[in-house]
């Protein structure tokens, strides 16, 4: 009887823990939104966080985007030319990037580059009592530190995803047109004919906005929730990256199901 009880309890514990954490995260999100006036009325605070989350991530985003686009073009060309459809290479590269790879891969890179840094910074501020000191100076750390970081991430993410897609398509152009010798005119015009601005590009931007929200919330929450020890911060940083990756992929599935169903 005791054994059964323990077994069921052990099964229940992670579930209740997860639920409790989700509840905290939801309340934390509400607190961020309630205290966002400071972040938006003092753009300097948010600007600095855009610099940290966005500007510092540009290099990795641009380089990765270029390579992903080039690989897509090489692989795509190999397959398409068997069916004599090599001139559709532009469509393949642009649609995969704009609809899926741009938002998703940029989101994953953003989580590991900027998300982990945000978690570590907030966690460290907590561990060294900087947040407590702020509170004792009658300054709300959620308004002063957390909300600007959150909005900085939310604003940076769609811009980074757009850069990723644009660089990827440029990479596809380099390989397809410059290296493999496809016709430049048909490369672009076929792409333009098949990619719809509202349906493909805007849906990609909406996806990246969702990912920006999710990753930023996870990053600030894990930092704020981290135990104030070296081990606690390192665990929280890892958790930010892992949770963000899972949430991005799950969200991507849900959003794709809604956006591109039956098209």
């Amino acid at each position: 009887m005791k054994l059964l009880f323990d077994l069921v309890s052990r099964l229940g514990q992670p579930v209740t823990n997860t639920l409790i954490k989700l509840g905290f995260a939801a309340r934390f999100q509400l607190a961020i939104l309630r205290h966002s006036a400071t972040a938006l009325l003092r753009p300097q605070l948010t600007l600095r966080e855009i610099w940290f989350a966005g500007v510092l991530s540009v290099l990795i985003i641009v380089v990765s985007g270029l390579f992903v686009g080039m690989v897509l073009a090489l692989q795509g060309y190999d397959t398409l030319q068997r069916f004599g459809a090599a001139s559709s290479l532009g469509i393949l590269v642009a649609l995969s990037l704009v609809r899926e790879l741009g938002p998703v891969v940029a989101g994953l890179l953003f989580a590991s580059r900027a998300g982990s840094a945000i978690t570590a910074e907030i966690g460290l501020m907590k561990a060294t009592e900087q947040l407590a000191a702020m509170e004792m100076m009658a300054v709300n750390p959620i308004a002063r530190v957390v909300a600007p970081k959150f909005w900085g991430g939310v604003i940076s993410m769609p811009l980074l995803a757009a850069m990723f897609s644009a660089m990827g398509i440029f990479g596809g152009y380099l390989i397809g047109v410059q290296l493999l010798g496809l016709d430049e005119g048909s490369f672009w015009s076929q792409m333009q004919g098949a990619v719809d601005f509202r349906l493909d590009v805007m849906n990609g931007v909406i996806k990246s906005l969702f990912f920006g929200f999710a990753v930023s919330l996870i990053a600030v929450f894990e930092g704020y929730d981290a135990p104030p020890t070296a081990e606690g911060i390192s665990t929280a940083t890892t958790r930010t990256v892992v949770t963000s990756a899972l949430v991005i992929l799950a969200l991507d599935f849900i959003l794709t199901a809604f956006m591109f169903r039956g098209v």
Binding site: L124, M125, T128, E129, Q130, A132, A133, M134, E135, M136, M137, A138
Partner: peptide, 15 residues
Amino acid sequence: RRKLGMLFQFGALFT
């Protein structure tokens, strides 16, 4: 809290 000042254990300066 505006009436209070607090010195933390290791200073807690904003790094």
